[in-house]
Simulated scan of single mutants.
Amino acid sequence: MNKPDPHTLFILGALDPEMREIARVLGVHRYAVAWAATGGQKCNSSSAYDADSALQMVQGRWRNQLILPRQPVVFVECAVARHAPVLRIDHHHPGDAGFDCRPHDFLRGSSLGQLLHLLGLEPDDTQRLLAAADHCLTSAYQGECPGVDPDELLFLRASWQAKMSSRPFGVVVSSILDAARLVRERYDALEGAALFLDPTLMVPDLPEGAARAGRPVRYRSMEPGGQVKEMLKGASAEMISSFMESHHALGRRVYGNPYRGYAGAYLN
């Protein structure tokens, strides 16, 4: 696809560090940005592909975004009912441009990398970190993404977690490193993962710590509304596929990507 028409509307999915940078880049290049919404509320990661509308921020307040019938629209990690995009920027589902990209090809795999390529831009150092973290966090922490320093990645990720959780930066770094130590200690070679299966005893920063440790982790968490979700992260493609198939056989709602090393299943 050529560089987007100046009137293109980009509709973005759930907010995370990568999506925040995508929105910033689009704003710098004067493209219209809206956020996927459901029932008048901005979507989160579990609802971004079931959006029924879009919202825009106007003078600090959310407003409905009008999508004109012939306006070119690009979906970034989302989908809005009754609207057909001219392009999807994504890496979550089979058929997405970045779905099967390996760690060494993280820029082509990540949504941020796809956007930068679309706009004819070269990534800076921070953008490389953001793209690698979002596409393949465990591999990035293990030095498998060219040009990505694992210690710089830890600094970036801890800074974001500190901002989002209102915790001091040093506390977050210590928490991540403590979680990494615990994952190494509890790694079960027979299971091929460190197990944390009691959702009432969640370890702070466990997924981040496991990625830093470079060990697969299988854990359960309590979701809003009382749902229990089981996750497997940082594992091989074969382990991820087996995890997804076993839960799917039990009739559970499953998602994941073997190429990116993660999967999840809702147990109830």
Rank of each mutant, 00 (worst) to 15 (best):
A180F: 00
Q65K: 04
V86P: 11
G226F: 09
Y49W: 13
R167K: 15
V86H: 14
F75N: 06
P199D: 07
Q71I: 01
G261S: 01
G147R: 00
K3Q: 15
L115W: 15
G13F: 08
L107W: 13
D198Q: 03
L15Q: 01
A81S: 13
H29L: 13
V33G: 12
V25Q: 07
L15R: 05
G95Y: 00
A97G: 04
V58Y: 03
Y31W: 02
K3E: 10
A237P: 02
P224T: 06
L232P: 09
R108Q: 05
Q161Y: 14
E152W: 00
W160H: 06
L195K: 08
K3I: 15
L190T: 15
D149F: 00
T38D: 02
P4G: 13
L182D: 11
G226W: 10
A79D: 14
M244D: 01
R260N: 04
D151N: 01
T126P: 00
A97H: 10
L116I: 07
G209S: 08
M1S: 11
S111G: 13
A23E: 11
Y255C: 01
D96M: 02
C136L: 12
E230F: 07
E223C: 03
E122D: 13
N268S: 05
D149H: 03
F243K: 06
R82Y: 15
D149C: 04
A235R: 08
G27I: 08
L116Q: 12
L107G: 06
V80Q: 12
F155Q: 03
D50Y: 12
S110N: 10
V148E: 00
W62V: 06
L15I: 01
L26S: 12
I67E: 04
T200Y: 08
Y259F: 01
L182V: 05
A263F: 00
D90V: 10
T138M: 14
Q127K: 03
A213K: 06
P168E: 14
L129H: 05
N257P: 04
H93R: 15
P168S: 15
G60E: 00
F106A: 07
N257D: 09
P258G: 03
G113D: 09
A179N: 07
G226R: 06
G60D: 06
A249L: 03
H29F: 15
E77A: 10
F196C: 09
R108A: 08
R186T: 07
R82P: 04
G109C: 04
A32N: 07
A140D: 10
R184M: 08
G261T: 11
